[in-house]
């Protein structure tokens, strides 16, 4: 008869009153009644006198409430359980007392607010802890990501181009070619056993006037093995002068452990600073 939601007292109840586990406070809708404007005409059949006891069971809208035991004395207001759709919810025994609605139960025009069942305390605390941990992890991940982004802006990750043996490759205003790597007799070999001196011949052809700077400031040069270890490479003889388009030759010296002699490869960075950082574009020459 009336479409009025029985819960609608006319007083707006804050959504915070949802007794759900994430509600920060336990504020509940006050059980007050609308006073003014005067409530709608009450639905017929309702009464303000003490409700007659319904003997045999719960309301038909809650057909599957557990045995009609009096509702447990929970401290929080009775949450509405969602009527599970397990079969036709034939009220167990209420039919006698209350005329039960036919098969699809309680097609209430405004479906009553569904309230979640209370979550067990352990699960609740577990969820809270999991949330805290998750948020912390997300926060740390964001910070780490941010720091990494900033670091990579300052020190771009290495971008090494592998150059096959005898080939020429372009880097930083010049073309580079590894001519050869040979062993040398180390004048201090007696004091430093286990090491071998290598002599490296490198050819540079400047592409433009900027490329001639390498005669004065050699590029960043290292010998590197597969595992990422690096060794110093010192220019021994640099070309006096480089001219664009004309090949110049560097002779370089390096000391590496004896067992690495055949494995190390020359890496070339545009300048010594980037070489130290191992950052940015680089060439790595196969032998």
């Amino acid at each position: 008869m009336s479409d009025q939601n029985p819960e609608d007292t006319g007083v707006w109840s804050p959504p915070a009153a949802e007794p759900s586990w994430f509600t920060p406070s336990k504020r509940l809708p006050r059980p007050d009644a609308r006073v003014w404007p005067p409530p709608e005409r009450e639905p017929r059949g309702s009464s303000t006198v003490p409700i007659p006891v319904i003997e045999d069971g719960p309301a038909p809208r809650r057909p599957t409430w557990p045995p009609p035991v009096p509702t447990p004395p929970a401290p929080v207001p009775q949450p509405f359980t969602r009527p599970p759709f397990s079969g036709p919810p034939v009220p167990p025994s209420a039919a006698a007392a209350v005329p039960a609605p036919p098969a699809p139960p309680a097609p209430a025009a405004p479906p009553p607010k569904r309230r979640r069942a209370p979550i067990p305390k352990v699960a609740k605390i577990g969820l809270q802890i999991a949330g805290a941990v998750g948020l912390t992890a997300a926060f740390l991940a964001m910070r780490g990501y941010d720091a990494l982004q900033r670091y990579e802006k300052d020190v771009p990750p290495a971008n090494v181009q592998q150059v096959s043996a005898g080939q020429e490759a372009t880097l930083a205003d010049a073309k580079w070619r590894l001519i050869g790597v040979s062993t040398m007799t180390d004048p201090q070999a007696a004091q430093q056993p286990g090491r071998t001196m290598l002599r490296i011949e490198l050819q540079a052809t400047p592409l433009n006037a900027d490329g001639t700077r390498f005669a004065l400031t050699p590029p960043g040069l290292y010998l590197a093995d597969k595992a990422g270890r690096t060794w110093m490479v010192e220019p021994w003889k640099s070309p006096e002068k480089l001219t664009p388009g004309v090949a110049g030759r560097f002779t370089l010296i390096s000391l590496v452990p004896k067992e690495m002699v055949d494995q190390v490869e020359l890496t070339l960075w545009p300048n010594p600073y980037l070489g130290r950082q191992q950052s940015g574009d680089a060439l790595r020459f196969d032998r």
Partner: peptide, 23 residues
């Protein structure tokens, strides 16, 4: 929804039963 619904004081149940003061 019908008289039955009106008869069953299910919704007013909450308002009608004042929360026991939480001690």
């Amino acid at each position: 929804m019908s008289a039955a619904h009106g008869l069953v004081p299910e919704a007013p149940a909450a308002p009608l039963r004042p929360l026991p003061p939480r001690r």
